[in-house]
Design a binder for these strands. Structure first.
Lengths: 261, 261
DNA sequence: GCCCATTTGTGCGTATGTATG
DNA sequence: GCATACATACGCACAAATGGG
């Protein structure tokens, strides 16, 4: 007889009931919530497929598809013949704004603290125009100064299509300070950001940015361009990051590449 | 009656017959080969699930799993009620050495041409030691100068565990010039590189690297550190790239993030 | 070394839902 | 309305790895 494992996670972390959301996605979401909420500690053994199919309204195939997705996320490790376990170093699910700097020991990331310095519609065209479908001034730009661990500051320019995501226009600025835009997209627009394209080079920073982040004019630093998309071909935002010279390394990806052998 | 679609791709692009390779992976590999080989043009309609299950030794579930993997790769687009199509801008499958620089128009990538300048065992420890499991001098280092589109050169330091991948030691250097190490890992060791962690910062280049890539001493440029893993927690190589100042943007990722909402 | 229960991995067949044209 | 085609879901069978006795 196998050891009894906790199976009431569905009560504590109920699966979302979004209309049209498939079962495997609901189960996956519930498991993610439970793991992030500490229901199972890192390294803990998860219920077996049998237990999950028995104690939940999900069939074996559905359970397996949800678990496979968690493995691809790096949240769960499965060992044939042994069991499924919470990954010991679960990857950060929400890497807000794609801005993570390594700590000195290389293991963690420095805390970031953003605040909005500008919000406006833009009519000029730029690298954002094509991916976001600019027509006239339907582009919303949000600039932020992002303090990184009391060491330095990064300047961020953020662009979305105002026709699609106009509700951002009417939020108070303070609310945008700490907003995880990915979370907003998922919660309010049901758009999961799944693809990220990032280009990096060195560049001379413009005067306004230098002033905003307290570096001297004409500073040369890292220039990062980000296009985030929902699904394979639906860009939802474009972002530019100006990172002054620092010893800290910017972590640009910890992502899956090709899938399933 | 539906239009007859070409179904002899399995003869022209036979699925690999690796022992223990699951069917869905073989079908996926065959489809990838056929698409990359031009059997179906971008935008072309692929055979339906029915046709595939009927004309191949694969069941519906297997076909669907292979197709879903292709969608996650961005190689195929599926539309319910319509069909499956080759993506019009299929992502580059093999981004050798993670070194791709945008062309001026931002659409393509500059050609790269590497050649080996050094191959040796190393005993000193470094950032590669922990992920690769260094014990004594069991680390193999391969340095290369990589010319990028006749414009500039990048210096690359590459590290693997010699105990695991010792066969690299005995290959002629010329053969390593153009080697796609990912392909070697897949073909000879059955190890698909699926995870890539990349950190970037600015750094002063050491004298030997400056000389090798024809830039002046003490040059400040991009410093990129890469850890590539097979599966969630099996690092297979560590790489450092020294990129001198250039207008060209380095493309650091076009990868999936979270999966299957 | 072997056997055996457990657990995940793969594969097949079927049924049903839903979007497309 | 209708046939087509992808999407989800279920149930079953067997293979393969694990871990303990």
């Amino acid at each position: 007889m196998s050891e009894q494992r906790r199976l009431d996670f569905l009560e504590r972390y109920p699966p979302p009931e979004k209309r049209g959301m498939p079962k495997y996605a609901r189960l996956r979401a519930a498991l993610v919530s439970a793991i992030e909420g500490g229901y199972w500690a890192p390294g803990a053994k998860l219920p077996t497929e049998q237990e999950l199919t028995g104690a939940t309204p999900y069939s074996l195939g559905t359970v397996q598809r949800a678990m496979r997705a968690l493995v691809e996320d790096g949240i769960v490790v499965r060992r044939q013949g042994s069991g499924s376990y919470v990954a010991t170093a679960p990857r950060q699910i929400d890497n807000p704004w794609h801005l993570r700097f390594r700590t000195a020991d290389g293991r963690g990331f420095l805390p970031v603290s953003p605040h909005v310095v500008l919000r406006e519609r833009v009519e000029v065209r730029g690298p954002w125009s094509e991916p976001l479908g600019q027509e006239g001034d339907n582009i919303l730009r949000v600039d932020r100064r992002i303090d990184v661990g009391d060491e330095f500051a990064v300047y961020s320019r953020f662009f979305v299509n105002a026709d699609r995501f106009g509700s951002l226009l009417y939020r108070p600025l303070a609310e945008l300070d700490d907003a995880n835009f990915k979370q907003i997209l998922l919660d309010e627009f049901d758009l999961p950001v799944t693809h990220v394209s990032q280009d990096v080079r060195m560049a001379i920073f413009p005067a306004d940015a230098c002033e905003a982040i307290d570096v001297e004019d004409e500073t040369v630093g890292l220039f990062l361009q980000v296009v985030a998309s929902a699904g394979a071909g639906d860009p939802v935002y474009y972002q530019e990051l100006l990172i002054p010279p620092t010893e800290r390394a910017l972590h640009v990806s910890d992502l899956r590449e090709a899938s399933e052998t």
